[in-house]
Computed example of a mutant assay.
Amino acid sequence: MKISEIMSGNVCVVAPDDRLSHAATLMAEHDVGSLPVGEDQRLVGFLTDRDIAVRAVARGLGGDARVREVMSTEVKYCFDDDDVDHVAMNMADLEVRRLPVVNRDKRLVGIVSLGNFAQSGERGASQDLLEGVAARH
């Protein structure tokens, strides 16, 4: 099974110069804990609710701060034609719960999360991923 078969394809994206308050509002409206950051149709970062709490609020930055000030710029991703088992093992090794999905032109086409794996019916991949992200740090 390919990642494109289980990923979430309707992805909300923020820009690096968007305000954190806008990003937080989008997260609340879409009930998500992370957003890809795009610029000129390219994936340039990733913003999580934890980034807002730990990198922004803990440093005294407010809602007017820009996404680029706290986003992660080292973005891990997978390809839409990657095998589900391969991506699950990669996510487990990276200890991440979600990954952006890009096509071979590196254009964002979706996000795959632990929840997508759980609903996929791929029990082995789901178990490997769960064990990887639930490992003690």
Rank of each mutant, 00 (worst) to 15 (best):
V57W: 02
H22M: 14
M71I: 04
H30F: 15
D93I: 04
A53K: 14
M91R: 00
V13M: 14
A88E: 04
R98S: 09
K106F: 15
D51P: 03
G60C: 11
F79N: 00
D18W: 11
I111K: 08
V11R: 06
R107T: 11
G60E: 11
D81I: 04
E29Y: 04
D17I: 07
A88L: 12
S21W: 05
S34V: 04
P36W: 09
L99R: 10
R98A: 12
A28H: 08
V84H: 06
D93T: 07
G63K: 04
G33A: 09
G62Q: 10
R97L: 02
R19G: 01
D17K: 12
E95K: 15
P16C: 07
M27K: 08
V32C: 10
R50T: 02
E74W: 09
D17T: 14
R50G: 02
D18S: 12
D81K: 09
D82E: 12
V54G: 03
V32A: 02
M27Y: 10
V109P: 03
D17E: 15
A53F: 13
T25A: 14
M91L: 07
A15G: 11
R97C: 01
A88V: 07
V102D: 00
V112W: 06
M89D: 04
M71K: 05
Y77K: 11
G60H: 10
M71A: 08
R55Y: 04
D81V: 06
G45M: 06
V112I: 12
V101D: 09
S34E: 11
P100I: 04
A65F: 08
K106D: 10
V44Y: 07
N90D: 01
M91I: 04
N103P: 03
E29C: 03
L94R: 02
L61M: 15
F46M: 15
V57N: 03
A65W: 06
V96L: 02
M89A: 13
P36L: 10
G38S: 11
A92Y: 11
V70K: 05
Q41I: 01
A24S: 10
D80W: 13
H30K: 13
R104Y: 01
K76G: 05
E29T: 01
D49F: 00
N90Q: 11
E39K: 15
H30C: 08
D93L: 14
D31F: 08
D17W: 11
K106A: 07
M89E: 09
D64C: 03
D93Y: 07
G63E: 14
T25R: 15
G33Q: 10
R97G: 10
D81E: 13
K76M: 15
K76V: 12
L99W: 13
P36Y: 08
D17N: 14
A58H: 02
C78Y: 06
D51A: 04
V57E: 02
V54P: 01
T73A: 12
